[in-house]
Design a protein around this nucleic acid. Structure first.
Lengths: 140, 140
DNA sequence: CTGCTTGCAAATTGTTTGCAACACC
DNA sequence: GGTGTTGCAAACAATTTGCAAGCAG
């Protein structure tokens, strides 16, 4: 799948320095960051970017469907730029680290119709929880 | 599985009027409420209960492992008293309704070891997203 | 008396919004 | 000049905390 910046260009999304930096931060990291972490990294590259702009940009990317929000326990939302590649998440309950999992086996998790209560299904989120090796060692 | 109040009594959890009301609200509803909704229902039964107490009580129940938090999109956390019975969630993206699903087929969702990055797995959350019949009809 | 629970109010955290200033065609 | 973007500060929402007062053993 194409790069986030490429996809945005194709969609004629108006590019600005602030927006580019946000998109670059999202595309460049393989973990899933909170809005604040994204802002921190964006500020390193472009010190005059403001919090409001970061939030507005992120919300727009979500509205465009180019980024999705994953909420796993913690207080703050995290943003996942990896749409288009179906994947699941593996969350460390110790340190909050989130890894992407690209399932090898059958992904076709679905719901039998008698169980679906008449819902029109649009997606499934799967989150594995556990302890990463580091946290497993440091635990009492 | 036993009732939440029974389990709490067995664990010698100190009972108070406020705590009982919170536990009753949790046990009595089959949907998953936010802290505010729980507080509203608790206030109906016990008007002098305070928000801080509701939060403290909920956090304690979570710490005890008798209630779990589910975070699905929306801003506020929701509390799930239905621990002990493995189940999944079906969330309406229109109105936020959450239903429990007790899977008939394969429950044993697991991770192949080459994919687990050395994590010690403790659980899996599965959330189906879709539109409930009402919201599907009212949609443009 | 001692320890845990409660309630108020204030603090924190995460996110959104109103609005004036700006940049770009 | 009009449309859309930015940044500040203030508003908001959800949750947590400090602390004095209350209750139970």
């Amino acid at each position: 799948m194409k790069d986030l910046l490429q996809r945005l260009a194709e969609r004629q999304w108006q590019m600005t320095p602030q927006r580019r930096v946000i998109a670059e931060v999202l595309a460049g990291e393989h973990v899933h960051l909170t809005a604040d972490e994204i802002l921190d990294r964006a500020v390193e590259r472009l010190p005059e970017i403001s919090r409001a702009t970061a939030y507005k940009t992120l919300n727009e990317l979500v509205a465009l469907g180019e980024v999705s929000i994953i909420t796993v326990g913690g207080r703050a939302r995290r943003y996942d730029p990896n749409v288009g590649t179906p994947h699941q998440h593996l969350v460390c309950e110790g340190c909050g680290l989130i890894r992407d999992i690209h399932p090898a086996g059958q992904t076709g998790l679905s719901l039998a119709s008698p169980e679906s209560f008449g819902f029109t299904l649009t997606g499934v989120d799967v989150v594995f929880r556990g302890l990463c090796p580091d946290c497993a060692n440091n635990k009492s």
